[in-house]
Amino acid sequence: MTPNELRVIANHIRRRDLQAVFEAGAGHIGGEMSVTDILTALYFRILSIDPANPDAPDRDRLILSKGHTACALYVTLAEKGFIPKDEISTFLKPHSRLNGHPNRTKVPGVEANTGPLGHGLPIGVGMAMAAKLDKADWRTFVVTGDGEMQEGSNWEAIMAASQFRLDNLTLIIDHNRLQQGARLSDTNDVAPFAPKLEAFGWAVEEIDGHDMAAISAALDRSAITPGKPKCIVAHTFKGQGISFMTDDVAWHHKVPSADQYKQAMSELEEAL
């Protein structure tokens, strides 16, 4: 799939996500807009997965460790055929499978029940080790938020991945520089990530996290450094694609008004 085709899909996912959050009256719209291009590239270009056989042993694994942006994952899974597209309208409704954080036991295609931050990377290390033990070539991808990297458990996993030479593991940090309440730099400035990860023995690449060609190239198997786990620091914007949300900490989990919704939707439509 070409970068242009991926852009069209990502635009569609943003619009469906926006509608779902607006209708549900809740969600994490800012982080969903920042991670959408990464998820789109993964699901429509990189991951070897089969919606008809979501538990195939040799499938690639993706963990959305920033589980609060579940809605973007649900829309992506629906677009890919893991769940019915019309099920998105049940997001957050009573007894819906689609609650505020993803659940593997209910939603096909979800690999881990995330929500509390700092859980995805340790699980990803275990998955990558399972593949190594089987001498299998399936890959493991973990997407974290940048604020999430303040959780110490991530650094435990970063050390282990390097120690075990897990070159089949890729960490993508959605580096939008904002956390729930403020900028990273005003809270606990864990950035810059690249020198830290390199010091821990990882191969690191910094990219524009909204450039489909760059995302696809960085995720490609050919971009693996043998013997080293890979970290992609994806520079993104919270609220990407919607002018009044972009890079504004207020839009972590704010819900647009009817007027804002109309404006946001028309901006996304025009961008097509």
Binding site: R61, G118, P122, I123, G126, A130, D134, T140, S153, A157
Partner: peptide, 15 residues
């Protein structure tokens, strides 16, 4: 914390 997460990931991988 990593130890238990690694266990969960290994289980996901069939171990």
């Amino acid at each position: 914390q990593n130890m238990v997460g690694v266990g969960a990931g290994l289980a996901n991988g069939g171990k």
